[in-house]
Computed example of a mutant assay.
Amino acid sequence: MHLLRIDASIQGDRSASSALADLVLDRVTAAHPAVPVVRRHLGQDPLPSDAWGNALAGSATPEQDRNERQRHALALAERLATELQQATAVVLAFPLYNYGVSQHVKAWIDLTVVGAEHGVRLLDGTPTVLVVTRGGAYGPGTPRDGWDHSTGYARRILVDHWGADLTIVERDFTLVGVNPALDEFTETAVTMRKTAEESAISAGESLAARHAA
């Protein structure tokens, strides 16, 4: 078993998405203490903002004509793609920011796409847990129903493009207790947090069980 974990929160120790990812990972490492875990924290250690453009330009340039920035960017892109392809289990903690994925996640996806060989499904059948957290509520019947442009996009990339065997753990109302305008939803938020934590634990146990054989 070789596990890849990627976080994208900018909230540090207060991150709701990282807390749920911790629950997933804890169940896996409890069952498999020696499992190697590769970690990337895109929020704390962002990928260079110009890397995608340089990698894309470099991929269209003969190797002998590439400049130093293009060579470095392509090497980074290939490393990201290799990390993903070598993983036998993946945990991703991607909070919703401004109704979509963060710039950190988009940079990672774009670079990874460039770094992969054309047509290769980097996560073909790989069990993957995607943790999604949202400050408000975005479910059916809410005023923001349809405003979450993160989860569908991530599913399209992870499943349709890369072939992941995907499980999604979701938690809404993470800003309850932070934003006074949401105080009326305190009880609902507590229930949602408990449900999300139970889902994260279950997802971690499923990952551990799949690699027990």
Results as ranks from 00 to 15, higher is better:
35 V>W: 00
207 L>Y: 13
39 R>E: 15
23 L>K: 14
161 H>N: 10
149 H>Q: 05
140 P>Y: 01
152 G>I: 04
106 K>V: 07
27 R>S: 07
62 P>E: 06
59 S>T: 04
142 T>V: 09
13 D>Q: 15
117 E>R: 11
143 P>Q: 11
141 G>Q: 08
114 V>D: 09
68 E>T: 08
157 I>H: 12
188 T>L: 04
196 A>C: 05
29 T>F: 10
104 H>I: 00
80 L>K: 07
89 A>W: 11
114 V>G: 13
183 D>Q: 13
41 H>N: 15
189 A>M: 09
208 A>H: 05
92 L>H: 05
151 T>H: 01
41 H>S: 14
195 T>I: 11
185 F>V: 02
167 T>D: 12
78 E>T: 12
201 I>F: 04
56 L>G: 00
105 V>F: 01
33 P>H: 11
42 L>D: 11
166 L>A: 01
17 S>K: 06
78 E>C: 06
119 G>A: 09
193 R>G: 12
101 V>D: 07
83 E>R: 01
105 V>N: 01
97 Y>V: 10
30 A>N: 12
33 P>Y: 13
167 T>E: 10
135 G>N: 13
132 V>E: 02
52 W>H: 15
186 T>E: 13
212 A>I: 07
24 V>L: 11
26 D>T: 12
71 R>C: 02
6 I>F: 00
62 P>H: 13
90 V>K: 01
182 L>H: 10
39 R>P: 04
201 I>S: 04
142 T>K: 04
181 A>E: 06
84 L>I: 12
9 S>A: 09
59 S>V: 01
119 G>P: 06
69 R>S: 03
159 V>L: 01
160 D>R: 15
39 R>L: 14
119 G>V: 14
4 L>H: 08
179 N>G: 05
198 E>Q: 15
15 S>P: 00
8 A>F: 12
184 E>R: 15
4 L>R: 04
39 R>N: 15
31 A>S: 10
104 H>Q: 07
120 V>Y: 08
81 A>G: 09
15 S>R: 01
13 D>S: 14
182 L>N: 11
191 T>Q: 09
31 A>Y: 06
192 M>F: 05
